[in-house]
């Protein structure tokens, strides 16, 4: 029996088009397989292993011992408070320093902004360790900064700038700054110049126009950048270890200490798990306030 011509037309090439779509989907999946494999190998497996270790006591049996200790000993709470404090302060310093930088970059004609952007990114391409030790050299008692300050009469005797909180914050802010500037710059670049013109045309003074138009329009980029900085700080190790000189104890440095002195994998893992959960919680809470995907990847 012949098919009715209408139905025949609506099915024209239907099978072939469908199977073409299927093929493309398989190809996509195939292309991402290596990445999925790597992630599984280097992220999910080790984290799962640490998670397991944190619930095992010295004799290899299940226990909540490590988590109990964390609740019992005040020192653990202090470490977490210090971690959040350093992270928050670093984020704050980055905001104060980074906002004007991003604003400046976004206001420049693209020819110049490229050059200045390079200056912001340059530290990115230098080893973290090198940069941290460079700060150690600059900030120490007989370092460049102290010498300079004494010479121009800012202070008379060397000030302790390193192996303490000050040094840690200086170093961390320097290393984290690009992470704040980049998303913020992206958000500012998306603000059309006519936005500010319109505000001023409607009667807003420059300060007012900034407050009610520019700031709200760049806030998503600021929030995204701050979040990245804050979260990266939470797990930061090298800089607090080197510039903190043992006086700034954050979770990551504490984990190393536990491993070095007690060789206690369970306790170290438990700390790691709690830090991971805290980080996820921060991300979740922040995600409820801001739509980061649009801030980072543009409008969909």
């Amino acid at each position: 029996m012949p098919v009715s011509p209408d139905i025949e037309r609506s099915m024209l090439n239907g099978q072939e088009l469908k199977s073409q779509k299927k093929r493309e989907e398989w190809v996509l999946l195939g292309l991402s397989l290596p990445a999925i494999f790597v992630i599984a190998l280097v992220v999910i497996l080790p984290v799962g292993w640490l998670f397991y270790l944190s619930f095992v006591d010295g004799h290899g049996s299940f226990s909540l011992e490590h988590y109990q200790k964390m609740v019992e000993y005040k020192s653990y709470a202090r470490v977490f408070i210090a971690t959040f404090k350093v992270s928050a302060l670093t984020t704050l310093i980055c905001i104060v320093l980074g906002y004007p930088i991003a604003y400046f970059l976004a206001a420049l004609p693209s020819r110049w902004s490229g050059i200045f952007m390079l200056a912001v990114l340059l530290p990115f391409w230098t080893s973290l360790l090198v940069r941290t030790y460079a700060w150690l050299v600059l900030l120490q008692r007989k370092g460049l900064l102290n010498d300079l300050a004494i010479q121009i009469g800012l202070w008379d005797s060397p000030v302790k700038l390193v192996h303490n909180m000050t040094g840690t914050l200086i170093g961390m802010a320097h290393i984290m700054l690009p992470f704040l500037v980049l998303p913020l710059y992206g958000a500012m670049k998306k603000i059309e110049p006519d936005m500010m013109q319109a505000a001023s045309n409607l009667g807003a003074s420059p300060v007012r126009a900034f407050g009610s138009i520019y700031l709200p329009l760049s806030i998503s980029g600021l929030a995204a950048g701050s979040l990245i900085v804050f979260v990266l700080c939470l797990g930061f190790y090298v800089t607090p270890a080197v510039l903190g000189g043992g006086r700034v104890v954050m979770v990551a440095t504490q984990i190393t200490a536990i491993l070095e002195h007690q060789f206690n994998w369970g306790a170290a893992s438990a700390l790691g798990v709690v830090l991971l959960l805290a980080t996820v919680l921060v991300l979740y809470l922040a995600g409820r306030f801001f739509k980061f995907d649009t801030a980072l990847f543009g409008k969909r």
Binding site: D194, M195, A198, A199
Partner: peptide, 27 residues
């Protein structure tokens, strides 16, 4: 410009995306 008291319709409209219609007009 903010003291000239002229109304302007921009070619791109330049509406503030973080405000509603009423907030834009009320600005």
């Amino acid at each position: 410009p903010h003291k000239r008291d002229v109304g302007m319709v921009f070619q791109s409209y330049a509406l503030f995306p973080h405000m509603t219609v009423s907030e834009n007009i009320g600005f």
